[in-house]
């Protein structure tokens, strides 16, 4: 039996060395993503590297918002700052409630915001796996207990392999020295906002009218983590506000059971005694698909400004009401 354990251990260690060697060779020639089980996106298109770097140092923040790219590209801290509200945008690519939970767990204790805005975009609530988002966070965050926990529960080879590459890379180049790639027509502003210089929607009328019809089905894992986010905010004495960031009405109509989705989020809010701001059904918000959106779901700068102004009004009104009640 002892001999067997020694042999197994020897095979595992050798396997690990061979694995590391292959990864290092591919990393060395700058082609680590050629390996099919690695997707390393440090400093990639979503600006997560810069956002998390800011979050690490952030202080005196009123509001943290979390969610997918419609959040990172839809909540502009500059607009909020005009009303004296300090916003930290922690949205990132394909961020599901699963990933949001670990991000909040990572930053709530140090940032200590008063409020958390959690976006309830239906595709994220339907995600059975959060691979894309986990890869983004693993590539751009320092390796800490929350990241390890996230990877552990994700149980995905792509995420685990990427974690290994991220770890090796951080030994070679510390995270604070890593470089963010730049892209044409895109910019990043302080506070976590990923903006764009593009003005009009790039989708044609045909494309806008031919989205695949689909049903909203919440994934059990995301429901579980929504519950955990509620609890986490309670534990940190932070008020959680639920939002639905606007998307084009053409895309909204592609959800066959959109009513069920709306009633689901309403029920979730009322069950947990939370405020819900749903801007997909807000009549005051007059958004044009052509000018206020860049594609089916991302707002253009004009759209961001229109949306943020209404959101800020609602937010201020909410606080005033609270003040009056208190």
């Amino acid at each position: 039996m002892k001999k067997l354990f020694i042999k197994i251990l020897a095979v595992i260690i050798t396997g690990f060395l061979i694995y590391s060697g292959i990864v290092l060779v591919f990393y060395g020639i700058g082609k680590v993503n050629w390996l099919p089980n690695i997707k390393f996106v440090r400093g990639g298109v979503g600006d997560t590297l810069l956002r998390l770097r800011e979050a690490k140092e952030a202080k005196g923040i009123d509001l943290i918002c979390v969610g997918s790219s419609i959040v990172s590209r839809g909540y502009d801290p500059r607009v909020f700052a005009m009303e004296g509200i300090r916003l930290l945008n922690l949205g990132s690519s394909s961020q599901s409630p699963y990933a949001s939970y670990f991000l909040l767990k990572m930053y709530l204790p140090s940032v200590k915001p008063k409020f958390v805005l959690l976006d309830l975009y239906w595709p994220m609530l339907s995600k059975i796996k959060s691979t894309e988002s986990s890869i983004d966070l693993v590539s751009n965050s320092e390796i800490n207990s929350e990241i390890l926990e996230m990877v552990w529960y994700e149980k995905d080879a792509l995420v685990m392999n990427t974690l290994f590459v991220s770890w090796i890379t951080q030994i070679i180049t510390p995270l604070n020295k890593a470089k963010q790639k730049t892209y044409d027509k895109r910019f990043y502003t302080e506070g976590g906002f990923s903006g764009t210089k593009q003005i009009y929607n790039t989708l044609t009328t045909d494309e806008l009218s031919s989205f695949r019809k689909h049903n909203f089905t919440p994934a059990p894992i995301q429901l579980e983590y929504l519950g955990k986010i509620v609890q986490l905010c309670k534990d940190h004495n932070v008020e959680l506000i639920l939002t639905v960031t606007p998307v084009t009405e053409e895309f909204r109509y592609s959800v066959k059971n959109y009513d069920e989705y709306e009633s689901f989020i309403k029920q979730f809010a009322s069950k947990n005694n939370l405020i819900l701001f749903n801007y997909n059904s807000n009549l005051d918000l007059d958004l044009s698909t052509e000018r206020d959106f860049l594609d089916k779901n991302h707002l253009s700068q004009t759209g961001v400004e229109k949306f943020n102004e209404i959101l800020i009004k609602d937010f201020i009104k909410l606080n005033q009401n609270k003040g009056n009640t208190n």
Binding site: A10, V11, I13, L17, I18, L35, I38, A157, N161
Partner: peptide, 17 residues
Amino acid sequence: IVAYGTIIAFIFLFGRF
């Protein structure tokens, strides 16, 4: 040992899980 280690490394790097 090297041969079996290689199989394990390949499973992690090239397998679908």
